[in-house]
Computed example of a mutant assay.
Amino acid sequence: MNDLPLNWITQELTALNADMNARFLWCTDENALNTLPTALHQEQLLVLTNRWDVAEQAKARGFTTAFNDFDCSEIPDNSLDKIFYRVSKEKPVVHHLLNQAWRCLKPGGQLLVAGYKNEGTKTYIEKIAKLLGSGKNIEKNGPVYSAALSKYTEYDAEQLLDDSDYRQPRPIALDSGIKLLSKPGLFGWNKVDAGSALLIEQLKQLSPPPNPLSTCVDLGCGYGYLTIAAASLDICKSINHWTLTDNNAAALQLAQQNLQHNQLNGEVIAADAGKSIRAKVDLLLCNPPFHQGFGIDGDLTDKFLLSAKHLLAPQGIAFFVVNQFIPLERKAAPLFNQIRVVIDNGSFKVIQLGL
């Protein structure tokens, strides 16, 4: 998918002509996947991303890279000459990074920001332009809004854009009977996903298998709901080690905290759909994403199914929950000998897979 706002950002990066003392920051998420250029201004530019796959691609292309939940706390105030940012999907993330741009830019430094019209980009530009004391300088090119905004005002923590307390984990789903922490920046961060809840309801009805399960991978774990909710079920009581893996830095942070919060023995691994995990497990749980960037991407389903095949032990079982329109059964057919639709409620379906 050709991302026009990202194209504008990379053009601006390519056009840079600065002395070696200048320092630049590029904040990017999944929008840059598979479209990163080779290293630009290698000594001066830091790529900051919350996506493991983007971080790995950026490193492979020669960029100095930081992988975290857009944590700018180690960047000194008034230290950057330019910041480049293609707006993210979720408002708290955008407001968080715009606030950090105000803090980190030098007086006279520039924020270069772009996004599509239907992502609220024009409003974001107007808000941060006011804080920076800059003219809006908004350019419209078809569906894309972009702006180069200079900083003329001193950072004031009392005037920040509302980022929903982005950095702070907090308890959620208090009526679920389990201990869960989450935070803004994750898809559906403040509730239990309906598909995941359906999967857990089906697992509740299953008896332990003849050969007790001892290991489980939560593939694309998010903040760890499937692991935490499944741990107390009869089918999972014999499991003595949990592995949670995700591509998103915030998810990994929260999954680790939720393991500790619930005193479960496990590990949290950053990976692209579990690719780097070499273990063979008895049970695999997965509620895979079906959006890549801003569009539906069927290849993601294939990626998660391939990982499930490689991760399952010979007698292992996998449970997937997907939106009703995802043809998981057809996609799984070349990879798995056992495919069973456990339930289809018209919105989601739970599918059991075996080798």
Rank of each mutant, 00 (worst) to 15 (best):
N323R: 02
G115H: 01
I172F: 07
D156I: 02
N265L: 09
D344S: 11
A101Q: 04
A332N: 08
D302F: 02
K275A: 15
R51F: 04
W52D: 05
Q263P: 12
Y124R: 02
F325C: 01
L180W: 10
R330E: 15
L80T: 00
A250V: 03
P289G: 02
Q57S: 02
Q257S: 15
T215R: 02
A22G: 03
G222S: 10
G266V: 04
A255S: 11
G115L: 03
E12Y: 01
S307M: 04
Q260D: 15
S207T: 15
K122E: 11
L132W: 10
V341N: 00
I351C: 02
R170W: 08
G224W: 08
R51Q: 14
Q263G: 07
P288A: 00
V87P: 01
G316A: 10
K91W: 01
T28W: 09
V342C: 10
D19F: 00
K106M: 13
Q256F: 08
V192A: 15
M1Q: 08
F290K: 04
E119N: 12
I351H: 05
H41E: 03
N323Y: 01
L16C: 11
G62S: 14
A308H: 03
V217Y: 07
K122A: 05
A255Y: 09
F348W: 12
S79D: 12
L33A: 14
V87C: 00
P107A: 01
R51L: 14
V54P: 07
Q352K: 15
I138V: 13
N345T: 03
A250H: 02
R23D: 01
V192T: 15
N137H: 14
A231H: 10
I128V: 15
N240K: 13
Q324L: 00
H41S: 02
P327G: 06
L199F: 07
V217I: 15
L355Y: 07
A58L: 04
K191D: 12
G298W: 01
D81M: 02
V144E: 00
L233A: 13
K140V: 12
L6K: 04
V268N: 09
K130E: 12
Q44H: 08
K89S: 01
A55G: 06
G224Q: 08
S88A: 11
L199T: 09
P209S: 04
T123D: 11
A332P: 14
L98V: 11
K106T: 05
A313I: 10
Q57H: 02
L97D: 09
Q257F: 05
F320Q: 14
S214V: 07
A318R: 15
A333K: 08
K280M: 03
K309I: 13
S146E: 00
L131F: 00
L206D: 10
R23P: 00
D19Q: 07
A157H: 00
N99W: 08
T243D: 03
V47D: 06
D272N: 11
E12M: 02
N258K: 07
G142P: 00
P169N: 04
D19L: 04
A148G: 13
A55W: 04
K136E: 13
Y85S: 07
A22S: 10
I75N: 01
G266F: 10
L45D: 06
E119A: 13
Q202R: 13
I239T: 05
D3W: 11
R330V: 07
L80D: 03
